[in-house]
Amino acid sequence: MGFKLLSKLLVYLTASIMAIASPLAFSVDSSGEYPTVSEIPVGEVRLYQIADGVWSHIATQSFDGAVYPSNGLIVRDGDELLLIDTAWGAKNTAALLAEIEKQIGLPVTRAVSTHFHDDRVGGVDVLRAAGVATYASPSTRRLAEVEGNEIPTHSLEGLSSSGDAVRFGPVELFYPGAAHSTDNLIVYVPSASVLYGGCAIYELSRTSAGNVADADLAEWPTSIERIQQHYPEAQFVIPGHGLPGGLDLLKHTTNVVKAHTNRSVVE
């Protein structure tokens, strides 16, 4: 069995187990497998329904001669939608809004960016022009300005110390501490036991640490421990890039980060 097929099978099995364990909360999309990078042309966006009122959005972007996937989250909030992270750029984010209108038909009224990198804030200006209120932590807003990236308009308070959590509509926002970046936030959907790890969490097929220019490698494993301790009931975990899975993604990420750190020390 090929690795790609095995990865998709694991996603399907995880979703099936969740649907059985929580039949009222989960209505997993039966329309197909989780979209992969090879299936999404740059400039297009796919939506994948995880649970009743919960979707991931998947886009792709060219970077350094390669094409990478990027995940975000959409959560229903009454007759409105909360968006977590842009679709990595203005063109993708405009396509995301169009796809949401086509498939869901509810307005996106608020959006949260989970850290300051372009795959999370690139497209904020498109959201703002569409009347979406954009939010991020003060740290993310400051770092985005320093980096020359787009800056969300509103500040999220109460997320300055490791372990801080605040309720934001249908989700809980959690600051686990520094990891992929010093400002990275985690998003949890309690009604569906869905954990969105953003770039602080890796997919299972990833074996290298990737972009760690703004990471705190020493603190990252401790931050992941905080996530595990705060959300032990999480059933569906979405990484910032690639295929979702279960809580095993947290341990896998820790292993990859520690291996990278150990290699760096040896070198």
Rank of each mutant, 00 (worst) to 15 (best):
Q229A: 14
L127Y: 02
D125N: 12
L83V: 09
W220C: 05
D183N: 07
A215Q: 04
A95G: 09
N255T: 10
L96P: 03
L204P: 06
E33P: 09
G122M: 11
N149E: 09
D248F: 11
G123L: 05
H230F: 15
E44I: 08
V45K: 04
V194C: 01
N184L: 01
S223V: 09
V166H: 08
A178N: 09
G131Q: 08
T222G: 13
Y196K: 00
L106Y: 12
I186P: 01
H252E: 00
L156F: 06
G72L: 02
V42R: 10
P190W: 06
L173T: 05
I58M: 08
F3S: 10
H260P: 11
T261Y: 09
N71Q: 03
A51I: 07
A259K: 12
D85S: 00
A94I: 14
S155Y: 08
V171T: 05
V112D: 07
A19Y: 15
Y34I: 11
D29G: 10
S22H: 08
S137Y: 05
H117T: 00
V166F: 07
V45F: 04
A129G: 11
E172H: 05
S205I: 08
G72A: 03
H241V: 01
A209C: 04
G105K: 11
D214H: 10
E233C: 05
T254C: 07
V171D: 01
R110M: 09
W88F: 00
T134H: 03
E101I: 07
P239E: 02
L81F: 01
E39S: 12
L195W: 01
A136S: 09
Y48R: 11
N184E: 00
A192I: 07
V266T: 14
M18T: 12
D119V: 03
G242Q: 02
V121K: 01
H241Q: 01
L13A: 14
S27H: 12
T253M: 04
P35A: 10
H180N: 02
L159G: 02
N255H: 11
L247V: 14
R206S: 15
I84E: 00
V124Y: 02
A87G: 00
Q103N: 14
E267A: 05
T153G: 10
N149A: 14
P176D: 01
V256H: 04
L96G: 00
Q235V: 10
P152D: 01
P138E: 09
R120I: 01
V132F: 02
H241P: 04
S223Y: 04
K102M: 13
G89I: 00
R167G: 11
L249I: 07
G177L: 02
G198R: 04
N262Q: 10
L217Y: 01
P23N: 10
T182P: 13
P176E: 00
A66F: 15
S208N: 15
A66K: 12
Q61N: 07
L73H: 04
L247T: 15
V108T: 06
A87H: 00
G105H: 15
P69A: 13
S137T: 12
E225P: 03
P107Q: 12
F26G: 14
L73A: 04
Y175G: 00
A66Y: 15
A179E: 04
L82H: 01
A19L: 15
H117I: 00
P152K: 02
G245P: 00
E39M: 12
V67S: 15
R141F: 03
I186L: 07
T182V: 12
G197S: 03
V11P: 15
I238R: 02
S205L: 09
I20P: 07
H154E: 10
P23W: 14
R76T: 09
E145I: 09
D118I: 07
A19R: 14
G240M: 05
V54G: 03
T114Y: 00
E101S: 13
A133V: 13
L195N: 00
R76Q: 11
K258F: 10
E39I: 11
S162N: 11
L97P: 03
P69Y: 14
G2V: 08
N255P: 05
L143Y: 10
L243F: 12
V237T: 04
A59K: 05
G198E: 04
E157L: 11
A98Q: 13
V42C: 08
P41F: 08
N71D: 04
T254M: 13
T222H: 14
E147A: 15
K251R: 13
I186G: 03
E233M: 11
S16H: 15
P69W: 07
Y196A: 03
H154Y: 10
T93W: 00
W55Q: 03
A234M: 06
G72D: 05
P176S: 03
G242F: 06
V187M: 06
N255I: 09
N149T: 09
N211G: 03
Y231V: 01
I151S: 07
L195T: 01
P152Y: 02
V112A: 06
G198T: 07
D164C: 04
T86G: 00
A133S: 11
T253Y: 01
E203V: 05
E172S: 03
Y135H: 08
A133T: 13
A133I: 14
S38W: 12
P190E: 12
G131M: 07
E44V: 10
A218L: 14
V256F: 06
Y34V: 11
Q228L: 13
L156E: 03
A234K: 04
R226A: 08
T222E: 12
E233V: 13
G158M: 07
A15N: 13
S264P: 12
F26D: 14
S38T: 10
A25N: 13
D216K: 07
H180Q: 05
A15Q: 09
S161T: 13
G148L: 07
S191R: 11
M1V: 06
Q103M: 14
P107F: 06
Q228W: 11
T207F: 09
F174Q: 02
A129C: 03
G2A: 08
I151G: 03
S16Y: 15
Y231A: 02
V237C: 04
V166R: 10
V189R: 01
I201G: 01
T60G: 11
T14C: 10
F236Q: 11
T134M: 05
I58N: 05
T14K: 08
Q61W: 08
L81S: 02
D248P: 08
S113R: 03
V45N: 03
G65C: 04
D125S: 10
D216C: 04
V189L: 06
E219A: 13
H154P: 05
V11W: 07
W55G: 02
D183I: 01
G169P: 07
D216S: 10
G198Q: 06
F174T: 01
H117Q: 04
S27N: 09
S208H: 11
I238D: 01
I238F: 05
Q229S: 13
G197V: 04
V75W: 03
I104K: 00
D216F: 04
A144N: 05
T36G: 10
S155P: 13
V187K: 01
A259D: 13
G131D: 08
S22Y: 09
K251P: 14
P244M: 09
E44K: 11
P41T: 12
R226P: 05
R76L: 12
N262Y: 11
A15L: 12
E219C: 05
V166L: 12
L156Y: 02
G43E: 08
L106T: 09
T60I: 13
P232D: 07
D164H: 10
V187Q: 00
V266C: 03
D248R: 07
K258R: 12
I84K: 00
N71A: 05
A144T: 10
L97M: 08
V124L: 09
K8E: 15
F116R: 04
R110I: 10
G53N: 11
I201S: 05
A133G: 10
A87V: 01
L81N: 01
I40Y: 07
S162L: 10
I104F: 06
L83S: 01
L156I: 09
A136G: 09
S191F: 14
D216R: 07
G89F: 02
Q103I: 12
A51F: 07
I238Y: 03
S27C: 13
R142G: 12
L127V: 02
A98K: 09
I20V: 14
A98I: 08
Y231Q: 00
I74E: 03
N184S: 04
N149W: 06
A179S: 06
I104Y: 00
V126T: 09
S264E: 11
G131I: 07
G169R: 05
A144L: 14
F3E: 07
L173S: 01
E145D: 12
A213R: 14
I224V: 12
P244H: 05
A192C: 05
P232A: 09
L243I: 14
L249V: 03
H260G: 13
A218W: 11
E39A: 13
G131H: 08
A129N: 15
E80W: 04
A215F: 01
A15K: 07
G32V: 10
G78N: 10
S30I: 09
E203A: 06
G123A: 04
R142E: 14
